[in-house]
Structures are given as C-alpha cells and as structure tokens.
Design a protein around this nucleic acid. Structure first.
Lengths: 207, 207
DNA sequence: GTTGTTGTTAATAGAGCTATTAAATACAAA
DNA sequence: TTTGTATTTAATAGCTCTATTAACAACAAC
C-alpha cells in the first residue's frame, strides 16, 4: 500500500504501475492490483489511461527512451586515450544498467507482445547508435592501424560489451535467490564484475 | 493445430505445452489454447496433469535438467591443450544454447514465479558446476603459474563465457525483428558470434 | 446559489481462464 | 457378452480481470 502522495493521482498511478510492471511484467500485473496499491478505485486507472495497454505503453516508451538515451549519450571525453574512453563507456553503460536493472528483461519479455513497438525501437536504434558508433569506429580503426588494438569490428566490440554488462543484471535475480546475498555482498559482486568487465574487454583488445 | 500423432495424447499435450510455454511463458499460455492446438478437449489436459502448474513444472524441470546437464557435461578432452579445451567448452556451451535458445529466458522469467523451484535449482547448481569448475580451475591455476594465462578467477572466466554466449540468444528475437534477417543471415550471424566469442575470451586470457 | 468541469466511486457487463463433475466412449480381460 | 478400467467429452461453477457506465463529490467560475 503506497502512501498517497496527495499531489497527483495520475502520477501515483504511473509510479505504482511502473514498479509493478517492472517487477512482474504486463500480464501478471492487473489494474485492480495497481489501484489497490495506489489506494484508489480501479476505475480511476482507466479514467486516466483508458486501457491497461495504454498505461503500459506510456511507461514502456518512457523507460525505453530514457534507457537508450543514457546508453548512447556520450559525455565529452576529448582528452582521454582510446583505452580510457572505452573504460569510460563500459563503466557508464554498466552504471545505467545498475540504475535500471529490470529494463533489459522488460524489453526482452514485452517486446514480443508488442509488435507495433518494434517500429519505435527500430527508429531509436537506427539513428542513435549509428552516430555514436561511427565516431567510436573511426577511433577504433585508427588504433587498429597504429597497432594498439587487435583487429575487431565495432559491432562485435559493442555487442560483447553489451553482453557482458547486461548479463550481470539479467542473472542477478537468480543469483540472489540461489546464494542468498546480503546487500553488501551484492554490492561487492556488482562492483567486482564492473571492473572485471572493463578488464576483460581491454585485455582482449590487445594486439 | 497439431497433427494428432495418434500414439499418446499425454505426449502430444506435453509437446504442444512445451512449445507454447517456451514461446509465451506460463501466464500467457492457457490450457484451453494447449488443448485447441493438440486437438483435444481442454479437460483432458487437466485429466493428465491435474493443474496447469503441474504441467508446467513437469516441462520446466525436464528442460531445466537437460539444459544444465548438457551445460556441465564435459566430454573427454584429455589430449587437448588448455586453450583448446576452453575453445571446446565455449563452443559446446554455445551449441547447447543454440539448440535451446529459449530456455534462458524461460528460466529467468518463470523462476521468480516459482520460489519452490529455486531449491531444485540450487541443488543442481551446487554440485554439478563445482566438480567441473574444480577440474577446470586446477588446470587454469597451472596455466597461470606457467605464465600462459593472465591471472583471472575461474568464476569470472565462467561468468564471462556464459554472458557472451547467452546474450546472443536472449537478444536474437529482438535483433530478428529489428533488422529482418533471413535464415541464412541469421545463421551467419550466429556462426560469426560463436567464433568471435571464442576469440574474445582467448585473446583476453593472454598473459 | 447555480452551473460546469474534473476527479472519484460503486456496480456491473462481458470475457476468459482453471478446475471439477458427470456422462459417454473405447477397449481389454474375463 | 459382460464387466471393469482408462480415456475423452460437454457442461459448468467459480474466479479474476478489463472496461464501461451512471452516479456522486469537489470545487472553481459566474
């Protein structure tokens, strides 16, 4: 039961819905349950969002954009060496996942239920990464020619980074149940894997 | 609509249920739908398995055991160098995932709904990997001391391999929709990532 | 105070799902 | 052929969920 924040019921519904959708997915979350946790009538959920699908999509698109925006938004790293830039990118990516650990599962699970959403995704994913990757790729090619980095395609590099980082958070819920971890242990483990991933990638790129 | 294989209705139900559960998960698959696809009365599903939960668990445990058995079952690799063994392990793991591409998602998604199943998982995962990892770890330590491999813990190594391989298949459904791939392209991509993963890991392990 | 708008609720229609039951059918054994 | 058991079906109880509707409350504007 949420503490009614008294300000804006619509926002409260969005907040509770987000939490529940992330926790249990679309099908296993009912508007009845959302209303109960918000502390309002179930019809109110439909008053503001008409359908459950609408409510979900509102949240999904919001989270989705936020997630990918963070993912591909590069702060200025002009001064850094290529290795340090990579380190920075891997760590940033890792941190975005840490802040949104449930988003990847949400996307993986719910996208199959949402064929229309694919178009939004496609649009987002075509433009953003292309420009980032183009920039990164140029530098990568330079480093390869200079002999500082072994030959690897930008796509393989990015895919591997993404894989290593994402898996950590996809598997975390299982790990937590499997070998009960307290918060400190969990934190340590995450911290460790973060640096391990940086290490793993950079070591692999040596010529 | 399945072609009634006429032999064993129970097996038919299991087969269809497996396909649907893997495709859409527990909640979004109904016994009504299973029956319709099998071509039998819905009550028959309950006659054989009493509850949908029962049916699901039967399949889940079967798939689960099969999956992890394959994962940790090492053929004799006595002759091979450590590098070749690793290559073999990574490729075997990759192939098991290729044959069961939906199992990881199933486990990730449905385990949260099934707290009791955790115990089975824990039991399975405590014993099997320990002995495999022990063996592998010994060899790893030898190689590290010999200076053939950089210092890395067996857990980090295994986790990284698992991450790289699993991500491929978790992300495949999205990739397929995102950039429509025909079968050949998909096959090429998978094949490429398989060798890339081997490469990525082995390169990273250099001292 | 009346009116109009917005927010909120109770009630409920309508649909789908799981599980059960009682009856029908198939079929092997006696 | 009869009998008993296993398989299969139709029907339905009971539940939960989504979405709608009509009524009610709050409150600002006039």
């Amino acid at each position: 039961m949420e503490i009614k924040s008294d300000q804006n019921m619509e926002q409260d519904i969005l907040g509770v819905a987000e939490r529940l959708f992330l926790e249990k997915g679309f099908v296993r979350t009912s508007t009845t349950e959302i209303a109960k946790e918000v502390g309002c009538n179930q019809a109110l959920v439909h008053y503001y969002f008409r359908t459950k699908e609408n409510l979900f999509n509102t949240i999904f698109e919001l989270k989705f954009k936020m997630f990918f925006k963070g993912l591909f938004e590069m702060k200025n790293m002009g001064e850094l060496s290529f290795q340090d830039k990579l380190k920075f990118i891997i760590e940033s990516h890792f941190e975005i996942l840490r802040k949104n650990p449930k988003i990847p599962s949400l996307i993986i699970n719910e996208l199959s239920r949402q064929p229309e959403e694919i178009d939004i995704l496609r649009e987002k994913l075509y433009r953003l990464p292309e420009q980032l990757f183009a920039e990164l790729n140029e530098e990568l090619q330079v480093e390869i020619i200079k002999g500082n980095i072994r030959n690897i395609s930008i796509m393989d590099l990015v895919f591997s980074i993404f894989s290593l980082n994402m898996s950590m958070f996809i598997m975390m819920p299982i790990l937590e149940k499997l070998l009960p971890l307290n918060e400190t242990q969990k934190e340590l483990m995450i911290q460790h894997r973060k640096s391990e991933n940086v290490d793993f990638v950079l070591k692999s790129l040596r010529p």
